[in-house]
């Protein structure tokens, strides 16, 4: 999971957080600084697929927009819709400081309500869909920014 915070970008991989920055140098060439270590790779990306060519190996990732990640895939505490449904209620005001596990947004699907909770401590920076809006499986419903 990627987190964009006021101080930079963080990526969680296998439960470990890594700081991320870098630049795009054009012609498919990217430089990333991961936890202070500078790496470079070539990549091709469009809306459907991402190919990273790094250290002689190629890694392909699917980026299908129809199947956004669900909460159950991301450990149960992400703010992504677990299935297609409707946003029912925003529980907190934008700017509220939250603790991991705090309830943030309620959605309804298949006649059942689901409460989505803060994945980590931080500040609720925005809601991505208004109350009553239809959302697709995997769509991110709210953004929590980490405070450092």
């Amino acid at each position: 999971m990627l987190h964009v915070t006021s101080t930079g970008i963080k990526v969680d991989i296998d439960g470990q957080g890594h700081s991320l920055s870098g630049e795009y140098q054009g012609h498919g060439h990217y430089v990333a600084v991961v936890d202070g270590q500078r790496l470079s790779a070539d990549a091709q990306i469009d809306d459907e697929a991402l190919s990273i060519m790094y250290q002689g190996a190629q890694y392909d990732f699917a980026l299908t927009s129809k199947h956004y990640v669900g909460a159950e895939q991301s450990g149960g505490d992400a703010l992504a819709a677990p299935m297609n449904g409707t946003v029912v209620k925003h529980l907190l005001d934008i700017g509220t400081e939250v603790k991991q596990g705090d309830a943030i947004v309620v959605m309804e699907a298949m006649k059942m309500e689901y409460t989505l909770n803060a994945p980590f401590d931080g500040v609720l920076s925005s809601y991505c869909y208004g109350e009553g809006e239809l959302v697709s499986h995997g769509a991110l419903l709210a953004i929590v920014e980490e405070q450092s």
Binding site: M1, L2, H3, V4, I9, V11, I13, H18, L20, G22, Y24, Y30, A32, V34, L39, A41, A43, I45, D47, L50, I52, Y54, Q55, A57, Y59, F61, A62, L63, T64, S65, H67, Y68, V69, Q73, S74, A78, A80, S126, C128, G138, A139, L140, I143
Partner: peptide, 30 residues
């Protein structure tokens, strides 16, 4: 390699004017 993928994806989203960045971050995880 995974962090690199995340970075490329982030750059891509930033460069895609039609997409608002943050609502799409969920896709990176996938």
């Amino acid at each position: 390699a995974l962090a690199m993928a995340a970075w490329v994806y982030y750059c891509h989203l930033q460069g895609t004017s039609k997409a608002q960045l943050q609502p799409h971050l969920g896709r990176v995880y996938r």
